[in-house]
Structures are given as structure tokens and as C-alpha cells.
Simulated assay, not measured.
Amino acid sequence: MLKRIAVADLQVGMFVHEFCGSRRHALWSRRFLLGDELALRRVRESGVLAVWIDTAQGSDTPAAPAVPPPLSALAIEVEARQAQQVCLSARAAVSEMLASVRLGQAVDVGRFEPLFDEIRDSVERHPHALIGLARLKSADDYTYMHSVAVCALMVALARQLDLDEAQVRAAGMAGLLHDLGKAAIPEAILNKPGRLSDAEFAIVRGHPEAGHRILCRDGRIDAAVLDACLHHHEKLDGSGYPHGLAGERIGLLARMCAICDVYDAVTSERVYKHAWDPAEALHRMATWQGHFDDGLFQAFVKAIGIYPVGSLVRLSDGRLARVVEQHPGSLLTPRVRVLAANGAETLLDLGDAATGLRIVRRDPAAGARLSDLRDSLAALYAEP
């Protein structure tokens, strides 16, 4: 039987029937048994993200582990409080870093290792708490908290791709540092509420190269991190910047960062636009042909959910709800807070068949009708 699996799930003893991706790949024409670790490493280093295996001629994937139960409401609140503290310390650290850059001082990336550890640990305990909280940043906080949010998203995506520890760390650091070059942009342009002029847009487009130059002064930074900072605005079809790279010429971390950067940008309040609903953002991004790596985008959706935390959805009984936690075993049955007109909220686990409820559609337009109702996540994370 043929089965499509991620390259990260390949094991010695499996029979590779076909590679998913570019037909120009050097390994495409061969079908072969992965007989040793050397062959397995060659495939994993090839840049291909998924393959078809033939289980009739080789080993199959192992049985899926038991799905852990969703967290209790208390556990969600505890992690939310921890995530809040991470965000507060992260905002201060990133603000200090950008201020140092504006003064022409060198960036000590080593100081960000403990911050990365806090973000990674929070994501691994409960990925959606920190990601959901970071999405609630104000327009004034965007420059600082965007880096924190992209770091958390990069860690979640790296884990979904089953990257090794060194790659997870590199992915997270790329998220933290990817927009460092914006410190070189005048704040009047960076925070301009209206449309940028061509000259102003050209200045903004220079931030990847500016950030790359600044980071290159520190010889300790991983080359893949530097590449992601320089090329996170490249697109698969070659229409991005600064170098118009296309396809596999764009590094893995840069392709990952492109997705995480755009997702957080469009789901955040900005001085010149309102935030998109998370589920609506994924829906729109999926239609942007030639923009993102398809395999990585699919992995990203699995990492944060078809209905990400914060999404407004309509239930089968007609009620409106906001997603507050993903179900560990199903993308379609998250835990939600049902919203009532009087402001009351009811926590429901759609993974529990006893509720008899399901999501029938995303409902981002409902957000405009909830101006008098506090965001359930904001209330959850608010200071006591």
C-alpha cells in the first residue's frame, strides 16, 4: 500500500516509492529501500519534505501513540499566567535590543538564549497559550511582540516537522531576530497609519538586509538563522525580496519564517489595519498561489489548528463561540467558549461526543458585533 509521510517520519527499512515536490530533484527517478542510516540521512538532507512509501515492499509507520486528553480549565489558566510572564519579560528584552541597535550598539545574541528557552518551554507545555496571548498585542506593542509571536510559531512549526533540537533552537532564534533590521527604519515610517509612498516602501523593504548586516557582526549566529533573517520575505514563485529567490533556493528556516511572519502580521492589530480572524487568515493565505511552501503551510495548519486559538466559529446549534484550545487528536474539535449576548461564557469541549455539537463554519464577521464583549482570551490573561 502506498502511504504519504513526512520525510521526518522516514525510518531505515522503508521503501521509498516517490518523492513529493520538484521533479527536477536528483533522487526523483529512483525507487529504493532505505537500507542504512547513510541513505536515510541523504534523503533528510535533500530538502524534500514528504515522500510516498510502499508498505508492501518495506516497513510501515508505527502505530500512533495514545492521544493525551485536553488540559483542564485550571491547567489552561495556569499556563496562561505563565505565558503572560514570558510575554512581559520578552517584550522588555526585545525592546531593549531594538533600542541598542538604534544607538548603533552591537547585539549580544547570547542574552536571548534564556528568553528563547522560556518561549520554547511554554510552547512545548501548551503551544496555544503563548501563541494566543501574543496575538492579542496592541498596535503600539506590535514591533516588540511580533518577534516573540513569530518565535513561538516557529518553535511550534519546527516541532510539527519533527526537527532536531539544534534546528528547533535555530528556528526559534530566527523568529526572535528576523525583523531586527526594522530598528533601522524611522519610526514615523514604521508606524505610519496611512499608505506608504514608493520611497517609504523602499526603505521598509530594506529591513532584511539591514538586519542581516547587523547580525553578521556577531560571528556566533547560525548561518541558517542569518539566512532566515535575510530571506523571510522571499516567495516560492520568485516574486519576493530582497533577492527574488524561488523554490528550494530559499532555505528551510526562511520558508518557515515567511509563513509565521505573515500569519502573525495579518492576525494582529496594526496602526493601519484591523486584525484578521485567525481561521480566516489561514483560509486566505491558502489561496495565495506561489507565496508559501505548500508542505510547510500544511504542517503549519496542523501545528496551530484549522481553527486557531482566538478564531470565531459558528456551532451547529447556531451559537457563536471562540476557540480557546486545540484538541490534541483532532483539528476539527477544539475546546471553545460559547459567547452569549449578556457576556456570559460557557466552556465546551467539542471533542466530547456528549455535547452533540460541531463547528459548521468560521464566522470572522461576528467580531464586529462583539464590540461590547471582552475578548475571552484577553479576559483569561488579564492581570488579576
Rank of each mutant, 00 (worst) to 15 (best):
R4M: 11
R4F: 00
L10D: 03
V12C: 03
M14N: 09
F19N: 00
C20V: 15
C20E: 14
W28H: 10
F32E: 12
A39P: 00
R42I: 09
V43T: 06
R44N: 08
V51A: 13
Q57E: 11
S59A: 15
A64Q: 12
L74F: 07
I76V: 15
E79V: 09
Q82D: 12
S95M: 06
E96F: 00
A106T: 12
D108N: 13
D108M: 02
G110V: 02
R111A: 15
R111V: 05
R111H: 10
E113I: 12
L115C: 08
S138G: 14
A139E: 11
Y144M: 13
C151T: 07
M154H: 09
R159P: 03
D162I: 00
V168A: 05
A171F: 04
E187Y: 02
K192E: 11
D222F: 02
G240E: 06
L245N: 07
E248G: 06
G251Y: 09
L253P: 10
P278Q: 10
G295M: 09
Q298M: 04
K302R: 15
K302I: 00
A321N: 06
R322P: 00
P334K: 03
V336P: 07
V338K: 01
V338L: 02
D349A: 02
G356V: 06
D372C: 11
